[in-house]
Design a protein around this nucleic acid. Structure first.
Lengths: 150, 150
DNA sequence: TGATTTTTGTTGCATTTACAACATAAAAAG
DNA sequence: CTTTTTATGTTGTAAATGCAACAAAAATCA
């Protein structure tokens, strides 16, 4: 009964594909919208926390952030108290595209939940949240090199 | 309220990341397990149907299938009645890895649904199926070049 | 304190991904 | 029956992705 994994994969790829196409006109290439929204909502966030919000490899995050900085969407500032970390802040350019991204995401959300009652929508959010919490433990472990037994 | 999109994205990326790491030892590189399972379950399927089961770009599917063929996991046969299509079949090698993939996916499924009652698990599957049906219409439309109004 | 482990971040390399543009066969329209 | 449209598949190019290996600062340990 691996059905839910397949459904989730199909939904995620379809939604991501749609967003990537629609955000081209914002000068955002593949996947970058993910970072922009999180940075706008968490100004001063560091890369390691950001990557955990998205579930992406550390090196992928490094390069996505480098590109966003190069294109003027974000700024990185060294923390005076901790030389190891770099805090990431949105620029005005990011703040301008943020509401557009949210509007698109909200629209997709409504399409996805078409035919759902408010109650059902609340339940599915709760369930997905629980699934995510369940799976992120394994993700962190496997990414660290641990093996799962099955 | 774009929460469900984010949860789905996180879950999908985490699960895919885990699977890709775990299937390296099967000589399957990134994403290939997706194709292998569908081809094993639908021998004779054509690329266009396959890509719709996965929600991936046509060119991506072409190259993934080329690689699977090159590595001996699948075979492509021209259809005698329709010169346009090529039917894809699993080889013995694919049949050998298939149960291993399923076992891993089942395990991840169980991890994901930890703490869910049977009833809740049934509900979440139903909801995800509905969400997928809702979103795939837009995906097909946007991929064809149509614009969404929002 | 000094040694060791963990956290955070970057780069080298190989690979996947996908938009565009194309090709050809089949189906539909006229 | 010819023309047009749709379905199916491939390649060129550019870009993202991620593992492995590394570096350095911070935190933990002994």
């Amino acid at each position: 009964m691996t059905e839910i994994l397949r459904e989730i994969g199909m939904i995620a790829r379809a939604l991501d594909s749609i967003s990537n196409i629609e955000f081209k006109e914002l000068e955002l290439t593949k996947g970058q919208y993910l970072y922009v929204v999180r940075i706008c909502e968490n100004p001063g966030i560091i890369q390691e926390q950001l990557l955990d919000l998205i579930k992406v490899d550390r090196s992928t995050a490094t390069r996505a952030i480098q590109k966003l900085e190069h294109n003027g969407f974000i700024e990185k500032h060294s923390d005076p108290d901790n030389k190891k970390i770099k805090r990431i802040y949105p620029t005005e350019k990011a703040e301008r595209v943020y509401p557009i991204i949210i509007r698109e995401n909200d629209y997709s959300n409504n399409v996805a939940l078409d035919g759902f009652s408010d109650e059902e929508a609340a339940i599915v959010l709760d369930y997905l949240h629980r699934i995510r919490k369940n799976i992120e433990t394994d993700w962190e472990s496997v990414k660290k090199g641990n093996k799962r037994d099955y």
